[in-house]
Nucleic acid binder design. Structure first.
Length: 892
DNA sequence: TCGGTCACG
DNA sequence: ACGTACGTGACCGAT
């Protein structure tokens, strides 16, 4: 039988590490929790990796220790614990208590002394001891093979395991000698002085030669190096003092039996309650199902009625006598555009949900029976992630009306920063209830199941539970939306937009495969040529796609100067290569190679993969709950980043065509929407005037920052001004601008100062919005879309600066998103009301594309321009440019 | 799974 | 002293 394992965690050290490793997260009530969250994540990871029998967390106790008595200046240079962290200690302790994990702290001692003592006791009891910390001082405790020290590496879940052998091998000295090493070199962070001029290298050398500090002084004459010797002699007392301070003691008077440290069952109810309170949703979902009392309740409680044949009598009766229902389809797998539809859950009013199974080939009967209910605007429908279900209906040629609530969209506008908007998350947050995540239901990786693999009963039960929870979670979300004055944003913009996006996705964008393939062949032959030339110039073959191998070739073999490094090695990005241009022929080739490979792999091969074989259409997925600012995102493929900036890339747009020769593409593009929004928000007179006069904004800015008339602005000056305008939108910094323009920071600062001097109200706006963000905890867009910015309160300069840029940028980017979303909803409605065949098929942040029937061209052009420019009335005019083409290349 | 890189607004 | 432009997604190699 293997030895029993005792784990001792340095609570102070690990909480500090977690706090600084993670962004400053806080709950809705403004309680900071990032440190605790990180700590618990680490704890889970370690418990998964190591099979622990005994556990204990050691904390420092406030007040002086014996080290302070020996040396007044001990840790005197420490900054006081930031407030955001200080409060997290009690939260952590509360949670550890709920986990039934014993904590020890003792007056006059630090956590590492407790850990040292426990490691001795554990070892004496024949246990294997694992010490967890962020502090390298612990290495001195590796007194035998039975002890291991885990030290945090970068991030929060990476730990490096140290053993006695590893230390000796790596440093050439024993763990015990680390105490002597500390005596020699001191420790800045603890304010332990050490001997001036002796660092790690010299220290280790000395200890290898003499073994200990005592021995060094016994044989001081043998010390080589005059300076070292003199320093040793002069600071002899410091060496011994520092050694004493640096030694972790192993005989702290703790009265505790091992039995008390034995791992115990957590108090699950208490733990669940705390996880909810502090919004640790991901930790909550790790708690085993059987421990979630409430969950059993909810999933067992939900009764459902399974309909396998065409006996729709009961459900029709219910539908006829009610005004609202929720529904959700079950698809075979996640591709809801293509995979077969297995069934549908329908919940009418407060009644038990129905699950209609489609397997008896009753889809047609279902459609004819239920179409009118889905298409009646008087019967309200709700759901979660309804885009998918709307598409499901479209596949049945059912065009939904009367969408009343989508819980996923609701939660998104309440807090767009979340990464997961599952029904389970909502249920935990609002109902103290939960259900399985889809991943728990289907598994993941190789063994992932499809819904088709589940029994009909399982599918019925799952969908019914979901619908039941969605029904119940609707109310609190609706109330919160009202409370935060987001009714307009929700009911008039985001909710109607769900249908618009579903429609766009369902319509898809026709692709001319021949154009793509032709272009792909051209790219491929160019890539082949370049590959050979690069090998030739490098004098060897290597994987040009590997930044590592490329770095070795450029900087080791060809000895080109290193411009920038990444965490893992040399940086070889376009910026670096650009600076190396002219130093070696190979550089140009690599840049070209990179560009072409990108085009080929992502935009030719990647796109071809996603083209529907029958219809030759691409159905990109438009996601409404991804971005922090309110923009929508596009995936599989991302149609929002199709190349345009280089001519070669731009050619790819020739492959995007209307669905038939009767149609053309009409492209409406907002001109300078973000700067116009800024003008509106700041009310800066100069900026507003520029837009009223429809001036070229970059030229105008150039004339202001360079203090010259507009007709004297050179193209180079205009370019600089353009970069300044971007900078203003992003939350300006001289560093960012200097890097972008490749100019000295000082020069960049001048431009910015000039800008803000000229556009005084912009300056004021930026200052005000940061202050508002700090006071309220969030910033808002024109339509009251909210983004919380806890970073603004950070003590950390970088984090706080980031928060300031978010506060400046989000209202601008987010309001622009509001505007185009309103335009989309209105255009969709107008096309429908007028019974036009033309369809909205794409949005790229400030651009919309309508696939337009040729007979409707003039009408659509006019309607589009009109709606886009008047979507939301600003204090400056909005301007839209309309272009028409037979493919997307022509419309630019 | 993560980091580097690069495509877009 | 700090070390950054804002918002996304896809692909690749390395781990």
């Amino acid at each position: 039988m293997s030895e029993e394992k005792l784990m001792v965690i340095d609570g102070n050290s690990l909480l500090h590490r977690a706090f600084y490793a993670l962004p400053l997260l806080s709950t809705k009530d403004g309680i900071y929790t990032n440190g605790v969250y990180g700590f618990l994540t680490m704890l889970h990871k370690i418990q998964e990796d190591y099979d622990i029998d005994y556990i204990c967390v050691a904390f420092d106790k406030k007040g002086p220790t014996f080290r302070h008595e020996a040396f007044e200046q001990y840790k005197a240079n420490r900054d006081s614990t930031p407030n955001e962290l200080a409060l997290q200690f009690s939260i952590l302790k509360e949670i550890l208590n709920a986990m039934n994990i014993r904590q020890i702290e003792l007056e006059g001692y630090e956590a590492d002394d407790i850990a040292g003592t426990l490691s001795r006791i554990g070892e004496e009891n024949g246990m294997e001891v694992i010490l967890v910390t962020g502090d390298k001082d612990y290495l001195q405790l590796l007194s035998s093979d039975n002890i291991k020290v885990l030290i945090t590496k970068k991030g929060i879940t990476e730990l490096e395991e140290y053993s006695r052998d590893k230390i000796i091998e790596e440093y050439g000295i024993t763990p015990e000698q680390f105490i002597d090493l500390k005596g020699l070199m001191g420790d800045k962070s603890d304010n332990i002085p050490g001997i001036p001029g002796i660092g790690e290298k010299t220290g280790i050398k000395l200890l290898k030669q003499f073994g200990s500090i005592e021995n060094i002084y016994d044989n001081i004459d043998e010390v080589g190096g005059k300076k070292t010797k003199e320093a040793l002699i002069e600071h002899k007392n410091i060496a011994f003092l520092s050694k004493k301070l640096g030694e972790i003691i192993k005989n702290v008077p703790i009265q505790i039996s091992m039995e008390e440290l034995k791992i115990k069952e957590p108090d699950w109810n208490k733990l669940v309650e705390l996880y909810k309170k502090f919004e640790f949703n991901s930790l909550l979902s790790k708690i085993p199902d059987s421990k979630l009392k409430i969950q059993e309740e909810s999933s067992h409680k939900v009764k459902y009625k399974l309909i396998k044949d065409n006996k729709f009598r009961d459900i029709i009766d219910e539908l006829d006598s009610n005004e609202e229902f929720g529904f959700k389809f079950v698809f075979e797998h996640e591709n809801y555009m293509k995979s077969s539809m297995l069934g549908i859950g329908i919940k009418i009013a407060d009644n038990s949900p129905y699950y209609i199974d489609f397997s008896e080939n009753n889809i047609d009967v279902f459609i004819t029976t239920f179409k009118k209910y889905f298409e009646s605007k008087d019967i309200k429908k709700y759901g979660h992630m309804m885009k998918v279900d709307i598409i499901g209906l479209l596949r049945m040629d059912i065009h939904i009306k009367g969408i009343e609530f989508d819980t996923m969209i609701g939660e998104y506008i309440l807090d767009p920063a979340q990464s997961n908007y599952s029904v389970n998350q909502l249920a935990m947050k609002y109902l103290n209830s939960s259900c399985k995540e889809e991943e728990q239901l289907l598994g993941k990786g190789k063994h992932k199941k499809t819904y088709g693999d589940l029994s009909v009963e399982t599918r019925a039960k799952y969908v019914s539970t979901i619908l039941d929870l969605v029904y119940r979670v609707k109310k609190p979300i609706r109330e919160k939306i009202k409370e935060l004055k987001m009714d307009c944003l929700y009911y008039e913009v985001e909710l109607p937009l769900v249908e618009v996006l579903a429609d766009m996705e369902y319509n898809g964008f026709k692709v001319d495969l021949e154009v793509l393939k032709q272009l792909g062949d051209e790219f491929e032959s160019q890539i082949n040529n370049l590959t050979n030339e690069i090998y030739e110039l490098a004098g060897q073959e290597f994987n040009i796609n590997s930044p590592k191998q490329l770095g070795e070739v450029l900087f080791d073999k060809l000895k080109l100067p290193v411009i920038k490094r990444t965490k893992t090695g040399y940086s070889t990005d376009a910026e670096v290569l650009d600076k190396l241009r002219g130093q070696h022929e190979i550089i140009e080739k690599i840049l070209k190679y990179r560009q072409l490979v990108k085009l080929k792999t992502t935009y030719i091969d990647g796109l071809i993969n996603l083209v529907d074989e029958k219809t030759h259409k691409i159905h990109s997925s438009f996601n409404q709950t991804v971005t922090n600012t309110g923009r929508i995102s596009s995936t599989e493929p991302n149609l929002q980043n199709i190349p345009i900036k280089t001519e070669e890339g731009r050619k790819i747009r020739k492959a995007f065509v209307p669905k038939s020769k009767d149609y053309v593409l009409v492209d409406g593009d907002y001109s300078q929407i973000e700067l116009r929004v800024l003008a509106h928000l700041s009310k800066d007179p100069k900026l507003m005037e520029a837009f009223f006069r429809d001036e070229d904004i970059h030229t105008k800015t150039a004339s202001e920052i360079f203090g010259i008339p507009k007709d004297e602005v050179t193209p180079a000056m205009r370019n600089k001004a353009k970069a300044v305008n971007f900078g203003i939108i992003y939350g300006i910094s001289d560093y960012g601008l200097s890097r972008d323009l490749n100019i000295p920071r000082k020069e960049a600062k001048e431009y910015i100062d000039n800008y803000l001097e000229n556009y005084k109200m912009v300056k004021k706006y930026m200052e005000d919005i940061i202050e508002i963000g700090r006071k309220k905890g969030y910033v808002e867009t024109i339509l009251n879309r909210r983004r919380y910015v806890p970073e603004l309160k950070s003590k950390n300069f970088n984090v706080r600066s980031f928060g300031e840029r978010i506060a400046m940028n989000t209202p601008i980017q987010g309001s622009a998103a509001d505007i185009i979303k309103v335009a989309m909803v209105k255009i969709y409605k107008e096309l429908k009301d007028r019974n036009l065949r033309s369809k909205l098929i794409l949005q790229v942040h400030d651009e919309l594309i309508i696939e337009t029937h040729k007979n409707e061209l003039e009408e659509v052009k006019q309607l589009m321009k009109n709606i886009m420019e008047n979507a939301i009335k600003l204090d400056v005019p909005l301007k839209v440019e309309i272009k028409v083409g037979d493919n997307w290349y022509e419309t630019q």
